[in-house]
């Protein structure tokens, strides 16, 4: 699915140089569920952004679906992104002025689906996420858990092969958090690759593999590790 070799990211301001990622190399296979863990500031989100084609690395190579994309322009990245990647954020990032249906519909609009096709797909995925009864509601009328289910629905509606989740349960209580994790697990079981950044030991247990970052470097990469940081 994707592979990085000596990936690094350095942020420069006029006087300060901060290394967010330092020679990160790993591979993620199709159908995997991988959790990325580490303390605040270790570079997790930077890594996720690069993997999600939202940002370019400053060094190293990044192969996405066998394409070297490290030097791609925003336009090229956007094209790859909208066809292959779905995003789930900690703070849901739903658009307040759009209702549930319209939020979920957005990716399909940008992919150029017809209105009837969009309706079919959105209804399907809302059904699957068990939120169809709220499709005319606006985000602010929903609970956090419901909002995140909408966000997941939006992430999967275009049937991406990869879902990137950035602390998907971070803003949820444990019951709602579990609901969302079950959804992600279900998606993974039906073949979607999932990469999830998390602080939560419990959430990481849903993953088949945990990559641990510290100060921009991988310190541990194991399958179903129980070891705590």
């Amino acid at each position: 699915m994707l592979k990085t070799t000596n990936l690094s990211k350095v942020f420069r301001t006029d006087e300060v140089e901060t290394t967010a990622l330092n020679n990160v190399s790993f591979e993620i296979k199709k159908g995997e569920f991988v959790a990325i863990m580490g303390p605040s500031g270790c570079g997790k989100s930077t890594l996720l952004n690069i993997l999600g084609l939202l940002d370019n690395p400053t060094g190293g190579e990044y192969f996405f679906l066998d394409n070297e994309v490290a030097k791609h322009s925003e336009k090229q990245r956007a094209k790859l992104r909208k066809n292959n990647i779905g995003f789930v954020f900690q703070n849901f990032n739903l658009i307040d002025e759009l209702n549930v249906f319209e939020n979920v519909e957005l990716p399909l609009i940008y992919l150029g689906y017809s209105a009837s096709e969009r309706k079919k797909r959105v209804d399907e995925v809302l059904e699957q996420m068990q939120i169809i009864h709220r499709k005319k509601h606006f985000p602010l009328q929903l609970s956090g858990g419901q909002q995140q289910r909408v966000a997941v629905a939006r992430a999967v509606v275009a049937k991406p092969s990869l879902i990137l989740a950035d602390e998907p349960t971070g803003n949820l209580d444990s019951a709602h958090g579990e609901e969302v994790m079950n959804l992600l697990e279900g998606l993974n079981q039906s073949g979607t690759t999932i990469i999830m950044v998390t602080h939560s030991q419990r959430d990481s247990e849903y993953a088949q593999r945990v990559i641990r970052l510290f100060d921009g470097q991988i310190i541990n990469e194991n399958i179903k590790s129980a070891a705590a940081v």
């Binding site: 999600g52 956007a78 992104r81 995003f87 990032n93 957005l106 275009a158």
Partner: peptide, 16 residues
Amino acid sequence: GREVGVRKVLGANGLN
């Protein structure tokens, strides 16, 4: 800004 960001992440290009 957030709305624009979300739209872009969801596949909107500058023209959209």
